[in-house]
C-alpha cells in the first residue's frame, strides 16, 4: 500500500484526474480552485498529458470539447462565475454526446461574489446549466479522499454514458488538507474503454461525425428522445448516497459535500444525547438519490435539508419524499450553518 500523503482537496482532484487517465486539461485561473490548475501545470505535461492555460473560460471548455472529440480523457475546472461562462460549451458537449469532466469548486455568489464556501450552484449543476434538455451527472465529494476517488468514477461515468460529468465541490473542500491514500492502480487504456466514435483520422474506415446540429426537426426530436432514454438509464443505475443511523431515525438530515461533514458532526452529537437522528448524504446530486428516501419513507419521518444555499437541494428532497415534512436550514454568501445551528433546529 502506498504511503498516505497530506493534500488539499484541489490537489487531490488534480492528482485523481491524472491517475484516472486524464490526458488533457485546459483551464483559466480563479480562486478558490487555483491549486488545482497549478498542480496540473506542474504534473500534466509529458505524462503523456497536455496542460493549457487558456485565454478564457470559454476557450478552455471548447478545448476540452475538441480534445474529447479526439478521444482524450479531457477536463476543465473553475469556480462559480467561471463555470457560468463555460455553460455554452458544456451544452454543446452534452449535445454532441461527448465525455468530459468539469470541476466546479464553488464560491459564494451571485455575480463575482467572493471565495468563501457556498453551494449556491446546485440548480445550475443539476438542471443542466446551459441551454437545451440535457443533464450533467453531478458528483459531490465530502472529503479529500473522496475528491480523489471520484475523479476515477467521473471519467468512467463520462465515458460509459458519453456525457459530461460535473464534480461539485466548494472552497472549504478545495482548500482543506486531509490524509489521502493514493490508488495503487492508475487508469490504463484498454480494448474495453476504446472509443470507436472518436475523431482519430478516418484512413481505412468511414468518417465519424460529431455534432450537436440537426437541420431536420424530426431528426432533432429523435436525438432528444434518445438523450432522454440515456438520462432515464442513468437515473435508474447511478444514484449514489451514504446513509448513517437511518434505521430508527425520527429525523433525517439531508446534506451533501462539506455541509454533510458538519451535519455528520451534529448527528453524532445528537445520537450521543439519545436523539434518533440520521443522515442521508447524496453523493450523486444528479441523479438525485431518490431511492435512499423511498427505502426509508415512513409517514412520521421528519426531514431536515441543510445546505449552503437558500433552498436548492431542498426541492429535490421534497420531490423525493412526497408528502413527508421537510424542514430547511440554509445559509449562503459565505455563511455556513454550524453544528450548533443544526442541533438547535433538530431539537427545536
Amino acid at each position: 500500500m502506498k504511503k498516505k500523503i497530506l493534500m488539499t482537496g484541489n490537489e487531490a482532484v488534480a492528482q485523481g484526474a491524472i491517475d484516472a487517465g486524464c490526458t488533457f486539461y485546459a483551464g483559466y485561473p480563479i480562486t478558490p480552485q487555483n491549486e488545482l490548475t497549478a498542480y496540473m501545470a506542474v504534473h500534466m505535461p509529458g505524462k503523456p498529458g497536455i496542460f493549457i492555460q487558456a485565454e478564457s473560460e470559454l476557450a478552455a471548455i471548447n478545448m476540452v470539447y475538441g480534445a474529447s472529440a479526439a478521444g482524450a480523457r479531457a477536463m476543465t475546472s473553475s469556480s462559480s462565475p467561471g463555470i457560468s461562462l463555460k455553460q455554452e460549451g458544456i451544452s454543446y458537449i452534452a449535445g454532441a454526446e461527448l465525455p468530459a469532466v468539469i470541476v466546479n469548486v464553488m464560491r459564494a455568489g451571485p455575480g463575482l461574489g467572493n471565495i468563501t464556501p457556498a453551494q449556491s450552484d446546485y440548480f445550475q449543476a443539476t438542471r443542466g446549466g446551459g441551454h437545451g434538455d440535457y443533464h450533467l451527472i453531478v458528483l459531490a465529494p465530502a472529503s479529500v479522499q473522496e475528491a480523489y476517488d471520484q475523479m476515477f468514477l467521473s471519467f468512467d461515468l463520462a465515458d460509459k454514458y458519453r456525457a459530461p460529468v460535473m464534480v461539485l465541490g466548494d472552497g472549504m473542500l478545495g482548500q482543506m488538507m486531509e490524509p489521502l491514500q493514493l490508488s495503487a492502480v492508475s487508469f490504463q487504456p484498454s480494448a474495453e474503454n476504446k472509443k470507436p466514435w472518436a475523431l482519430t483520422g478516418c484512413a481505412g474506415r468511414s468518417p465519424n461525425v460529431i455534432k450537436s446540429f440537426y437541420m431536420d426537426t424530426n431528426e432533432l426530436e429523435k436525438f432528444n428522445l434518445n438523450l432522454q432514454k440515456k438520462y432515464a438509464l442513468i437515473r435508474q443505475k447511478e444514484q449514489r448516497w451514504e446513509e448513517i443511523f437511518l434505521k430508527d431515525a425520527k429525523t433525517i438530515i439531508v446534506a451533501y459535500g462539506s455541509m454533510a461533514r458538519i451535519a455528520r458532526s451534529a448527528v453524532h452529537a445528537l445520537r450521543g444525547k439519545g436523539k434518533k437522528v440520521g443522515l442521508i448524504r447524496p453523493i450523486t446530486l444528479w441523479p438525485f438519490p431518490e431511492k435512499a428516501f423511498t427505502k426509508h419513507l415512513t409517514s412520521n419521518t421528519r426531514y431536515l435539508a441543510v445546505e449552503m444555499s437558500y433552498g436548492q437541494m431542498l426541492e429535490d428532497v421534497q420531490l423525493a419524499v412526497g408528502k413527508a415534512k421537510v424542514d430547511f436550514l440554509g445559509r449562503a454568501g459565505g455563511g455556513v450553518p454550524s453544528e450548533e445551528d443544526i442541533i438547535r433546529r433538530v431539537n427545536g
Binding site: P32, G171, M172, M177
Partner: peptide
C-alpha cells in the same frame, strides 16, 4: 490520526 487542516483563505 485523523486530521484536517483548514486555512483562512481570504
Amino acid at each position: 490520526k485523523f486530521v484536517t487542516w483548514l486555512p483562512a483563505y481570504g
